[in-house]
Amino acid sequence: MNAFGLPEILFLLQGLKWTVLLTIISFIGGGVIGLLIALARVSTSPVIQRLAAAYIALFQGTPLLMQLFIIYYGLALLQINVDAWIAVSFAYTAHASAFLGDIWRGTIQSLPRGQTEAANALSLGYVSRMRDIILPQALKISLPATIGFAVQLTKGTSLAAIVGFIELARAGQIVSNLIFQPLLVFGIVGLIYFAICWPMSIWGTRMERRMSRNHA
């Protein structure tokens, strides 16, 4: 029986690397698509609105695990040969974009109507109205929720283990199986997750406070 030593730690850190990478990719992909979803959701066209609402409902209303299965194995069944990375990134981007899109849709709609009216009265076009007026305010308000979701996303990447991804949680499981000290190993894995997620929460709170001080 092995003890918990340097090789095990390095193995966990290797897993951590994939966890962090997958989180970043999902967040960026989800952020870009989520912004489009949010904009579509507040569009003046009822058709676009409904399509975006359906997208959100679909990915919020089904388990992430199922989305992973369907995209990973489903694409293979369709004879589309994609790298596991691409399949997993795809699934997480869809998942994150639905949640971020809905968070941002909410904050966009929470802004006073007068902001849009003032922008319209100044004949600011759609792009400027969104980029200069609506989104900066909406994203600021959404910051706590957005960071909260990023924390969820970080932990949620552990589900990628199911399609063979050796990220942090899966690495922990492997190490634990090797050295038969599940409490110790998963304790350490938990601490690593905590060490990432907790500062993110603090950072979010600080940023929120700083921004509101600037504009108070």
Binding site: P112, G114, Q115, E117, A118, A121, L122, S123, L124, G125, S128, D132, I133, P136, Q137, K140, H215
Partner: peptide
């Protein structure tokens, strides 16, 4: 572009400085 409007509730852009509130449309429009 020919019509200016002033609202009951001002509707200034709270995240922009006064100077930017006034100059934004000149730049963008």
């Amino acid at each position: 572009r020919e019509v200016g409007m002033v609202f009951q509730s001002f509707n200034l852009f709270p995240h922009l400085k006064i100077i930017d509130n006034c100059s934004l449309a000149l730049r963008r429009v």
